[in-house]
Each structure stands twice: as C-alpha cells, then as structure tokens.
Design a protein around this nucleic acid. Structure first.
Lengths: 231, 231
DNA sequence: TACAAATTATGATAAATATCATATCTAATA
DNA sequence: TATTAGATATGATATTTATCATAATTTGTA
C-alpha cells in the first residue's frame, strides 16, 4: 500500500460528476482536506474484519472483493466491487467495526475520507447525504439479491451466473482475464474448488467458453444464459 | 387488514423511547399527521414485491417474514422480524419499489408513516436520521450475516441455528409455538421441506427438542448449540 | 533460471441432499 | 360434522456435491 501525496482535487476529479455534482466550495474543501488517496497492489488487504471504521472508502480505480473468514479459516466472498462504488457498505451506519475484510484483486486506487468530515457535509447537504446513502445501500441490496439468485441454482447455474456477472457488469466484454481464482469463485458461490474447476472444464468441453491461461472467452452467450436460468 | 382509527399519539406511545426520544413537538406533529396504523391477521400480505414504496413501516407488535418468490414460484425467506424493527429494509433508499414481500406470521400491528413526511423530519433532525438509518441498516446487516452463517453449515446445523434464533432472539424462552411451518423453515435455510422435517424428527429422537403439536421445547441447549457450531 | 508454492485438472469414492411415493395427522371451512 | 387442503412423517432411490488422492501446470520469487 502506498499513499499518494500529490492527490487529485475533488473539484477537478473525473469522478466528480458521479458523486459530487452540486457541492459548494466550502463543502468540497471540507472533504478535500479530510481526504487521503491510497494505491493498493493486487492481493493487498485494504481493511480487515474487526478494524475500527474511521473513514468512508470510495473506489476510484481497480477491483476489490469483500469477504468474511469463518472460524475454520475458510473465506466466503460477499461481493466484488468496481469503481465507483463506496466499499464501506452499511456497517458504516450500524457498526463501529468492519464486519468483513476488503482486499484488492488488481491495482486499486481508494479515496479515504475521514468519517466526521463526511458526516458534517452530509448534515450540511441532505441531498448529498441521500445520494451517498443510496449508493451505499445499493451494495447491500446487491449482496442480498445475489445470494437469493445463487441459492436457487446448483453448481452449473452458479458458475454461469458469475461468468455472466464478470462479462456483463465488470468488463462489458466477452473476453476477459479472470480477476479471481477458481477457489475464489467457489468462495463466491458456496462451492468447493474442485467442483468449480470441474464446471469450468465442462463449460469448455461443451463449447460455452474458451480458456487460455487466465483469459476466459464466452463463446456461446445464449447457451450460457440458459444454463444460468435453468441449471 | 384493518386500519385503526383511534391511533395512539406518538408522544404517548410506549415505543417512543426506543425511537423518538428527542423529537420536538413540531417534528412529532409532522410524523403523527402523516401516520396510519394497521392490523394484519396471520397470513396476510403486508407488502408485495414490486409495489411502490410510499411509506416507512414500523413494526409495533407481532411477527413478520420478509421473502422473495422466484420464477418457479418457490419462496425464499430473507428474515423474520419482530418489534420494534423497521421492516422496509434498505430498499427504501436505493429503490422505488419493494424487492421482497412482507407477510404477517401472527396478528401484527404496523405504523405506516408517509415517506415525504419522514424524510422531512430526517432532514430537520440529523440525529434522528442517523438513528433511523442505523436501525434500517442493521436489518440488512443481519440478513447478510445470517446467510453467511447458514452457508457454512449443513442441514442439522442450519435447523439448530433457526431453533436457537427463535428461542434466543424472538421468544427468549426454551418453549415456544413454532411461528412458521417446516416448509418455511426450509425456505429460510435453503433446504427441502422433507429434509427439514426429518431433521426435526431426528432432534426429537435424540432428545435435543420435544415436539407437542406446534409447540417446540428445547430440552438440551448445550448439545443443540454444539450442533449449531459443528453440524 | 530454478525452486517452491499455489493453481488447475481429473478420477474414484463417500456423503449429503433432493426427489418421489405414500400415509397419517391437523386445521380450516362449507 | 364432514370434507378437504395443507402439514407432518418416513422410506426408498436418484442426484448432487464433497472429499480424498494424485498429477500437471502456472506463478512468484530467491
């Protein structure tokens, strides 16, 4: 992890319009002066379950996973998040400590705004508050919705679900480098690594996808979407 | 469903201290005049997936389930909620329509406050807003946490989890009338009705619980907690 | 480059869970 | 009260998934 000293001013940030379109100069200054920017390398832990929540985290660039570790040491992945998500989740309002960990799946840029400063601006500008709330709550909603989907399916449907999620939501391409290992796919869909791998092999054999090293190409969207629905 | 015409004034409501300890008279009046109170009988639907969210719902008395229905018509229960939960969940901030349905598991009293009035008071009183947010976000957090727990376990552990949830969190007694059928227990823990029933029978045979009609008595907490942890 | 560790891969088998069938019991209601 | 739908119960069997074992391949790093 590396702190960026020469940070971008929020006023000129390219993401400004996505979140801060209507703050006053004073409000910008409060956020800007309470803000740090960090780069995390692939594999680095951004926040660990149990740590005190001290700031809002805004994902500027990169890809992260939110996960929990059970007593036996096994991980369960709650979600994969991309720019420009807030990755603090709801816990920021209901808990003082993180209930999950966050780690970087690729080089990731995070804006870190001190909690009190952010709450001050939310209190000053309730529209901004609602927008933040809206964005944060969407992440919880998606996790719940996603678990609902996953729970209805069995292995093949679950793997298809994840492949389509990566293709449709993250990369918006039919060909992409897998950002997570097969084990992690398993942690995301509550399946063993072996069965996840087997399913990838089967999809390849059946011509649904092509696998070249880490690169996956979806070759038959129609059938894959069908497996997602029915399998 | 029946509307209560002679509704309790928030200022004198016994639940006041749990949520509204510090509102001004003006703020009370805004909420009070935008408020209705309903009684739902056991089995009645309180809100249906897809309906427009028009109000905050506060559970005064009773017990409800939040559930989603998939394409094939099967239900999945997200959570069971008791007084004095807000039962709107997060969707209230991130969606305009319900993403799940709510139904009454017993006679249930619900306070229904128009959304715009509630948002006005939240804007006027940010401490109140934070308290509401805190309460709502806790429900989402609990759903996520609960799924995490359930996913790690297999049938026996899952059934034990639900029995202990009902005993520890809902009734705070070792003996209680089951508020949901075995099918619904299955919908809550992602298991078939048959396997859920079989597990109840097995717990009975092993002396962990006693079953008399709808009444369940936990007879051996220690072993049941152990099954919850390990099985 | 070479080594170690992690990842992907696949087979054989065991275990868990779902499905189908049938029967009894219970609760709602005409 | 008689009827019926739903809930509980249990067995037999099929299907799905996990576990264990072993090997090839890839990746990170000394």
């Amino acid at each position: 992890m590396r702190i960026i000293n020469d940070i971008t001013d929020c006023k000129t940030c390219i993401y400004r319009k996505m979140l801060f379109p209507d703050l006053s100069d004073q409000e910008y200054d409060i956020i800007n002066s309470a803000r740090k920017e960090y780069i995390f390398k692939r594999g680095e832990i951004i926040r660990k379950e149990g740590e005190t929540i001290k700031s809002f985290l805004y994902l500027r660039k990169g890809l992260v996973k939110l996960f929990k570790t059970d007593k036996s040491g096994k991980d369960q992945i709650l979600s994969i998040n991309k720019p420009t998500d807030f990755i603090n989740l709801l816990s920021i309002f209901s808990n003082s400590t993180y209930k999950y960990s966050i780690s970087a799946l690729e080089e990731t840029y995070v804006c870190d705004v001190d909690l009190p400063a952010m709450l001050d601006v939310i209190r000053m500008n309730s529209d901004f508050g609602m927008r933040v709330l809206n964005r944060i709550s969407k992440i919880s909603d998606e996790i719940i919705e996603n678990r609902f989907e996953i729970n209805q399916k069995q292995v093949k449907g679950r793997v298809a679900h994840i492949l389509l999620f990566l293709s449709d939501n993250i990369y918006k391409k039919s060909s992409f480098r897998m950002p997570i290992t097969r084990r992690e796919v398993g942690e995301l869909i509550s399946m063993t690594t072996e069965n996840t791998i087997r399913t990838f092999s089967e999809f390849k054999k059946d011509g649904l996808i092509a696998i070249e090293g880490k690169v996956i190409t979806i070759e038959d969207f129609e059938r894959l979407r069908n497996v997602n629905k029915t399998g």
